[in-house]
Nucleic acid binder design. Structure first.
Length: 555
RNA sequence: UGACCUAUGGUGUAAUUGGCAACACAUCUGAUUUUGGUUCAGACAUUCUAGGUUCGAGUCCUAGUAGGUCAACCA
């Protein structure tokens, strides 16, 4: 057996070094820490895959922990949606879902520890004054006049903060680190602020809430997380993350930063996604155009495709912009393998087979999925009148056009080879009907005609065709990076044609009453899934991704 | 007027740690095909720049250049 050396990403290298050195007894424990203030998107999908797959690879565990330390933006509605998305992606966290708010009491005592060590103080300065004293990246900060309060006074005031004796914004608890540090985050960061707000889990029990820097690392430590993975923006937080753990003398979780994923034509800013929803540019968080996990699910992207995509994208520390084509390739791959085939005519034109007996109806056998022959066949009606795709016919066709044109032959998929004889047009010159004759000995499966047409067309039987609605989706924005210039006007790059509804498409009856979410390959066109808006009257299909097109008509 | 991070095909990641620059996507050829799909074969790189160390540098050293991040009582 030839051993192929597997290449490791930089996080795996760190983990393997830790295991080799016996750190934490070789244990690997990660966590996915969403804030329940919005829906998960493609960027979260990458973080989820990394955390869960890395832990699984090394026999470890992954916690789901909601980072709910800001009561005014968070809600249980998001908690449930986030859980659903993670499970749909195919992952299960260790035990029950956890919450940073579960540790509020412990964090409070951590803060008291720090005060007692002379490493934290209550600051009465206004937010403006604190910002002023903090300096800028290139100008050192200045010490607060409240920095040298006695431990006893700090203890009393902090307890007063906790007991609700002071109004919002009047005081904060700050860590006493170093106002001259070149790292802004080390300039006496705020640990606790006063917020008389209702928390989605602790209700009105608390009026002080810890800041991210005094909650995240502490939660990691409490859960004995070994490798705390986050995105690059948190690089500057690491010295503070380590400082708190060191001063508190608690379990030393380690923060490791990786580059978050950017995908062309997509945005992952929660604020901007919310704006798209609120201003009705999309129909909701799960609009199939949204880069949210729920949106992609409704779009018909299989969870497996998302996982494969995240794996292929890799993990590194440099800024990146992934082409959507890679995502679409992953989606096609899974859908090609798994989805049933069906014939749907999106833009119908009638075709009459003049030498086919009127009133005759044949049951033709069609394969369900050529990639899975074991699935067998089903039957489709064929008769004298059918519909074909308008784009599959051209009166004056170039030589490279392999479809139907007067005088040319073409194969009807699963049926007969036909020869085009004539056509009818309306006053405006639109083709209204195409007349063909068929070769009776060319039936699919036992073709003895010897005719070798260049192309094969999909079709639907006129007598049994049903109308449906097809929602064709395209990228949400017209340029790859709609937020590059950092203007709020990313909306000017909104793609007005990101949704085109087609209500004249014709399906074969087989497609009626299929399960919501089920994917089909509409032969020669693309992958579509059944939308939840479908009902007994009308099926609604969402375009997941089109088939690759090897030939583009030049008109 | 700083600190930190990052630089490898069009895109994204590799390169057994100093030994023939690899894989995937995209693009372009060609073969196969009753889906112009799938599948198969092939093509596509001054490793940011300039010096240096070395038999040998994507990898090590020096100096540049470019991009990113940091000044919420958000996470």
């Amino acid at each position: 057996m030839s051993e192929k050396k597997e290449s490791l990403n930089f996080i795996e290298q760190i983990i393997e070094e830790d295991i080799a050195s016996g750190k934490h007894g070789g244990r690997v424990h990660t966590r996915f820490p969403p804030e329940p203030n919005g829906y998960l998107h493609i960027g979260h999908a990458k973080a989820i895959c990394i955390n869960f797959e890395l832990a699984a690879k090394y026999g470890g565990k992954t916690n789901l922990r909601f980072d709910d330390t800001n009561p005014i933006t968070e809600d249980t509605e998001y908690v449930e949606a986030i859980k659903k998305d993670i499970q749909w992606l195919g992952f299960q966290w260790e035990g029950e879902a956890l919450f940073a708010s579960d540790y509020f009491d412990q964090m409070y005592h951590f803060a008291i520890d720090l005060i007692k060590k002379g490493l934290a103080y209550v600051d009465d300065s206004t937010p403006e004054m604190i910002a002023e004293m903090k300096g800028t990246p290139t100008v050192q900060g200045k010490n607060s006049p409240f920095r040298d309060r006695t431990i006893e006074e700090n203890l009393t005031l902090f307890e007063g903060m906790k007991n609700g004796e002071f109004p919002d914004g009047s005081r904060v608890l700050r860590a006493k680190v170093d106002m001259t540090s070149p790292n802004m985050l080390m300039r006496d960061p705020v640990m606790y602020r006063i917020k008389h707000a209702h928390h989605h889990r602790t209700g009105n029990q608390w009026v002080i809430y810890p800041m991210y820097d005094f909650a995240h690392g502490q939660s990691d430590s409490i859960e004995h997380i070994t490798h705390s993975l986050c995105s690059l923006e948190f690089r500057h937080h690491r010295p503070l993350y380590d400082w708190f753990i060191q001063q508190l003398e608690i379990f030393p979780s380690r923060q490791i930063e990786f580059a978050r994923m950017n995908v062309a034509y997509m945005i992952t800013s929660k604020r901007r996604l919310l704006k798209l929803v609120q201003e009705n540019y999309v129909t909701g968080w799960d609009d199939p155009r949204m880069p949210t996990i729920s949106g992609m699910r409704r779009r018909g992207y299989p969870a497996e495709a998302l996982r494969v995509f995240c794996d292929k994208v890799g993990v590194a520390k440099r800024d990146n912009l992934i082409e959507v084509e890679l995502l679409e390739s992953c989606v096609r791959d899974v859908l090609n393998r798994d989805s049933e085939r069906a014939m749907v005519v999106l833009n119908p034109v009638k075709l009459v087979i003049t030498n086919y007996p009127d009133g005759k109806c044949e049951k033709l056998s069609v394969e369900i999925n050529p990639e899975k022959p074991e699935l067998g066949h089903r039957e489709v009606d064929f008769s004298r009148e059918i519909f074909i795709e308008r784009e599959d016919f051209m009166e004056d066709a170039p030589r490279k056009f392999f479809r139907l044109s007067p005088g040319r032959d073409v194969r009807l998929k699963h049926a007969y080879i036909i020869h085009c004889n004539s056509l009818e047009k309306d006053e405006e010159g639109n083709v209204t009907e195409i007349h063909c004759s068929y070769y009776p000995d060319s039936r699919s499966g036992n073709d003895t005609s010897g005719v070798k047409p260049k192309g094969t067309l999909h079709w639907v039987n006129a007598g049994s065709a049903k109308k449906c609605i097809v929602r064709n989706y395209d990228r949400l924005f017209t340029i790859p990076e709609p937020t590059v210039d950092d203007g709020q006007d990313f909306l000017k790059f909104y793609n007005e044609e990101s949704l085109v509804v087609n209500d004249k498409a014709l399906i074969e009856p087989y497609l009626l009453r299929q399960d919501v979410g089920k994917s089909f390959q509409f032969l020669r066109q693309g992958y579509y899934c059944v939308d939840a808006d479908s009902n007994d009257e009308t099926m609604i299909f969402n375009l997941s991704v089109s088939l690759k097109e090897g030939w583009k008509p030049g008109y």
